[in-house]
Structure formats: structure tokens, C-alpha cells
Design a protein around this nucleic acid. Structure first.
Lengths: 264, 264
DNA sequence: AAGTGGTCTAGACCACGTT
DNA sequence: ACGTGGTCTAGACCACTTT
């Protein structure tokens, strides 16, 4: 019709409805659409974008579910808030990628790294034989040069072999796995809790014992559902928090550093 | 075609694709489909359910996005895990509803309740005039009779009037607002952090000072996007945690009590 | 009563994984 | 080469909000 390749199907690499969603996001960021404004009806959007109604709906579904637009049956859609710069859908992949996207300098180094027998708990978390070996890595990560978190990650053997050969001060293991080895983190399960800073963590983070830490358990998966890593992360609670948003369907999730209040 | 009312549109109260999704969920729970099994193709499912392909896709989209099924282009879908009993999509509405759904006895009482001027921070969180009044409520909540969290909630005037007249030991304010006043919590933004137990919290929870607390900031919204409350909740970290799951689209989110490991 | 969004139909093409 | 899922078309009906 008026497209890259020619009519139907996915034309380029990005789906039509995702490009439409981005276009609407940009209109909101540019101020063409303000918070509280009504959105044009789906029918008229379909005409102006020259797509069928279903495609527009697909696009708007993304914006409704991440809380950018309201969505009630029969009611005109309204702009609820300005979407965050980096499409938050994609954020909860990697701390380093989040930091970079927000103009912060992520850093980190491996403190300890060794092969261990998985054991019951780790084995069931990443679905490997409890007797198989996993690579256990202890990392300290920093933001703009300041240490903010301790990370204790276990990789199944297949990934451990790849991670083992990476430089110890690599900025983003996740990015390296994606770019070089085509192993992409597609989702994760998380549990949030809290703990107080013990002796080892205090030394690693360079703070006094007794400080509150946000405890973040995480099992990351590929798109095929294969567990890629299990990690226990501990954040200095007054410096780094984790933000989650849940709507009808989608939840965005990302990090917040001290003083940031863009989320709530 | 062979439906409640007659062909098209939503027939009963629940959409066809949601019922199909539930049916597939049940097949997994019953063991008809085991973890790792391939799902029948969308085309054949469409035939057996007597719906059009798009409707099946809508159903499977739900299961893919909450991590129950895998979803890669061109690849047969597989069962990734057994979905949790209560559709986790719906859980992160209310602590009391989560507890009830899990067979636990939620409890709680209002410790303090008063009208205050909103102020800058609260005002911007729930989008009301900073000079307007809000009802600020301090609650202690329990699980099976054991105190587990402290809740400091601010309601805008419209809701505060309703909440004020509720009994102080009401099990679920959220349910009361939904059932009686038709005010439904549809989504929320959350920030997780940590803190240590101070004097007031220690007294309220009946524990010693210095214990780690999971700090949970929350702004809840209606489906129209209207902010309904802002709350700062503090959980005894060793007893109650919060679980989040994020996939391609959806994130489920709910609570976990001590010893539970169903999530990871 | 009119308009809008939510749901559904019955097809089609294409990218991708698998054979 | 084939099957599958992801995307898209061009319609329709119904529930709900708004006027």
C-alpha cells in the first residue's frame, strides 16, 4: 500500500503497530497531545495511518497496558501520563542497559568467580540437575563510580562457559550475551524483600554494617522460557530502588536512583 | 454459533478468549498438558473451540505474556510452567484479596485516622491540589493473626469520605470500595526499597527495632487512570515478600509469605 | 440516540523454526 | 519445503459511556 516492501505482513523489522505506538508516544512527548487530552477515535486513526482498525487497536493496546492511555469500554481514550523516554517495556533486562538509557555510567567488577555444584535450590530455580555444576559469580556494581549493589549470580553450565571467558570489568554481561552469542533475556521472575547489611556486604559496598538493603531475587528467562540465570541482588536502599507498574495487562519495571521521582 | 446468546460479540460477561485461556490453564493444572509439552497449533485449537483463529491467539497471548507458555515466531508453543491457582493477573489489587485467595486469614485495624492537607508530595502523587484535604490512615495488617505490615495510606477527599465511615477493623477496604461503591482498583505504580524498623513501627508490629523492613510505595489507579490512593507499606521482610513476573508484555505481581517458594 | 471501544469473524501474507 | 506463529485486512455486532 505505501510501505517498505508491499502490503501485508511485517514489512521491515519492526511491526506496523509498534511503529504506530511509538508515533503516538512521541506525539505525547512533543506536547501535541497533553495529559488529559482525548485521543482521536480508533476509526479515524486507522484512516490517517492507512491501516485497518485492528492494527490501530494493537498499537493502542500497548499504550493502555503500560498506563500511558486510559482504556474503558465505550469511553474515549485519554492521555494519562507522559511515557518514559526508553520504552519501559524493554527496560527490566539489565541494570547496565537501564543505566545507559538514563544517561548514567554503569560499572562493575567481578569479585569472585567459581564453579560449584548447583544444589537443590539453585537447581530448581534454573531447572538444571542439582548435581550439575554452575558458575557462581559475585559482582559489585556501581553507578557513576559509586558502588550501589552486590550481585550473586549463578549461570547454568552452558552460559557459565561463556561468562567465564568475559573480562571481569565488563560493563554489561547481558549485552555481551545478546550481541555476541544471541542469547537474549526476555523476561524474569522477581521477589523483593529486605535485609540489613552484613560484614561481607559492608566491605564490598564500602558502607557501615546495619544499613538497610533491598533484596532482589531474580530468575531470568529466554523467549523460549529457558532459565538463563538466577541472581540475588542487594541494593543500597537509600540510593537505588526498583519501580514496577502494573495495569490491565502490562507491567513496566525499572530502577530508580536516589532523588528520582519520575515514577510516582 | 453455539453460544450463550448467539454468534458475535461478547456473549456472557466473560470474553470468549478469556474462557479459552482459562480452559487451557486448567488443562495444564489437571496434568492433561505437562510442562515441556507442545501445545496444539492455533489453527487446530480454533477448530476445536469453534472460534476464529484471532480469538485463539488472543487467548494464548495471555498465557504467553504471563510466562505460562513460550512464544517464538514459527516455533510450536510449549508449556513453560503450571499457572498459579488464582490468575495472577488479577492479584495485585489488594493484600486482603490475595490472602483470601491463598487460604490465609487477612486481618487489620485502623490505628490512626485523620484529615490532613495533602501537601506537595501527596498531592502530586494522587493528582489533587496540594492544599486540598486528604484522609490519612495508619493501619496494621495481619496474616493468620500475626502482624506483618504497617500501611500509611492517603485517600483523596472523595474516597476519604467513604473510607472514613467504614468500620476500623474492616477486612478489605478495596473490596468494600469495589462492591459497594463501584470503585475498582485497576492498576498501580510501585517502588520497592528497604528500611530498618524504627520505634513507632516496632511498637505497631510488636518486634524489636532494627529489623529489616521491605518498603513498598504504591499509587493505585482506576481503569480511567484516576489515582485512588497513595500508600507507603512496610512489611516484615522475613515474613512477607513481594513477587513480580515480567515477560514480553504482562507482569503478574503478588505477595509471598515466609517459606513459600512457589514463585521462583 | 449517537459514538466509541471491546470483541469476534474469516480470511491472507510473511518470517521463522523445523524437517 | 513445510508448518507455525506473528501480523494484517476489512469488515460486523455488542456493551458501555456520553450527549
Amino acid at each position: 500500500m505505501g510501505n517498505g516492501t508491499d502490503g501485508r505482513g511485517a514489512s521491515a523489522s519492526v511491526a506496523r503497530y509498534e511503529r504506530i505506538a511509538d508515533q503516538v508516544r512521541n506525539e505525547i512527548r512533543n506536547g501535541e497531545l497533553k495529559v488529559g487530552d482525548f485521543l482521536a477515535s480508533e476509526a479515524s486513526l486507522a484512516k490517517s495511518f492507512e491501516v485497518s482498525p485492528g492494527t490501530v487497536r494493537e498499537a493502542l493496546r500497548l499504550l493502555v497496558s503500560d498506563g500511558t492511555l486510559s482504556g474503558r469500554r465505550g469511553a474515549r481514550k485519554t492521555v494519562l501520563r507522559i511515557p518514559r523516554p526508553a520504552s519501559t517495556q524493554e527496560e527490566f533486562r539489565s541494570f547496565a542497559q537501564w543505566a545507559t538509557a538514563h544517561g548514567r555510567q554503569p560499572g562493575g567488577r567481578v569479585v569472585e568467580q567459581q564453579w560449584q555444584i548447583a544444589g537443590e535450590e539453585t537447581g530448581s530455580a534454573i531447572k538444571v540437575d542439582p548435581r550439575s555444576r554452575v558458575l557462581r559469580v559475585l559482582r559489585v556494581r556501581s553507578l557513576d563510580g559509586e558502588r550501589v549493589m552486590v550481585e550473586r549470580t549463578s549461570y547454568p553450565e552452558r552460559l557459565g562457559i561463556l561468562v567465564e571467558s568475559m573480562p571481569p570489568d565488563l560493563e554489561s554481561v547481558t549485552r555481551e550475551l545478546a550481541d555476541v552469542h544471541d542469547i537474549v533475556f526476555a523476561g524474569a521472575d522477581h521477589v523483593f524483600s529486605a535485609t540489613v547489611c552484613g560484614q561481607q556486604d559492608a566491605a564490598l559496598l564500602g558502607v557501615a554494617r546495619g544499613r538497610p538493603l533491598l533484596r532482589h531475587l531474580r530468575v531470568s528467562r529466554s523467549a523460549a522460557g529457558e532459565p538463563l540465570e538466577v541472581s540475588e541482588d542487594r541494593y543500597l536502599a537509600n540510593i537505588l530502588s526498583v519501580a514496577v507498574s502494573n495495569g490491565r495487562n502490562v507491567n513496566a519495571i525499572g530502577w530508580l536512583s536516589a532523588g528520582e521521582s519520575g515514577w510516582l
